[in-house]
Design a binder for these strands. Structure first.
Lengths: 141, 141
DNA sequence: ATCGGTGCAAATGATTTGCATAAGT
DNA sequence: ACTTATGCAAATCATTTGCACCGAT
């Protein structure tokens, strides 16, 4: 994977915790919390510390291997394979729907031309209500 | 202000901390952190507690007087006067540009029809890089 | 051998909560 | 009076940090 190469090029070391974290991020493909990553890493190497996971994720983010976005009170991490990657987070049931559509290009252009602002809209958590929860609410009303 | 009426209708009490918080949210008009609100309230009433501010903001949100959105590690609050309200947060210098354009209606329609998902895109923090920071970076490169 | 990487434990800092008291209505 | 609102202090909980040791190159 290109992440390994990227790290090597910069003289960064390929340690077991880093390998495990990259493996898992690649294997899962979607969004992950630091906690989930730690759980996985612990299955393979129980002595690896939580702070190592956080430090590694920060490193991977700086080197463009990982994107982060914030769900309610946590950070979500995922690898950089797709340009667009959205997480539709239902505020009622907590379900997350993954979405890869090119939704925001017009918004990006609009903000750039009107405000000179270059938004990063490629990886976001979008809050809302999913279909089934919306139906439940309509029945109740 | 309609917020006062809303509270009264529901049998909620108009206390001094609540008045101060509503005053400040209305006066400022833009986004606020809990800390800024607390500082203002303390100027007028030094004994008001931080937890009261949080509890009041939660109450106001539940009653539709206030919207919340998350900047990096804090919650931003603002009143519900405008339907659209975006905070363009520069990841370099921390500056926040306010924006009221109707940017996301097409995105909302698209997510509704393709995923059955009703996103809440009316009040968001949009991360990115502002014009001056982008220029600085181009000069450096 | 060097310097980056890690485990450990403790700190941080925003937000939440339990509880006894105070104050709107 | 009666219930809601508040102050206070302590708890939470994700994330960060200082430091001494470890291990990849």
């Amino acid at each position: 994977m290109s992440c390994f190469v990227t790290l090597k090029e910069k003289g960064l070391r390929l340690t077991r915790p880093r390998q495990l974290i990259l493996d898992y991020i690649h294997e899962r493909g979607d969004h992950l919390t630091a906690e989930e990553i730690l759980n996985y890493v612990h299955e393979k190497s129980p002595r690896v510390n939580k702070s190592t996971v956080y430090r590694t994720l920060e490193l991977l983010e700086k080197n463009g291997c990982v994107f982060t976005s914030r769900a309610n009170d946590r950070t979500l991490y995922h690898h950089t394979e797709h340009k667009h990657h959205y997480h539709l987070l239902c505020q009622r049931c907590g379900k997350i729907i993954e979405c890869q559509e090119d939704l925001f290009t017009p918004v990006e252009q609009s903000l750039a031309s009107q405000y000179g602002f270059s938004p990063d809209l490629d990886h976001m958590v979008i809050n809302g209500v999913c279909e089934s929860c919306r139906h439940k609410e309509m029945r109740r009303a």
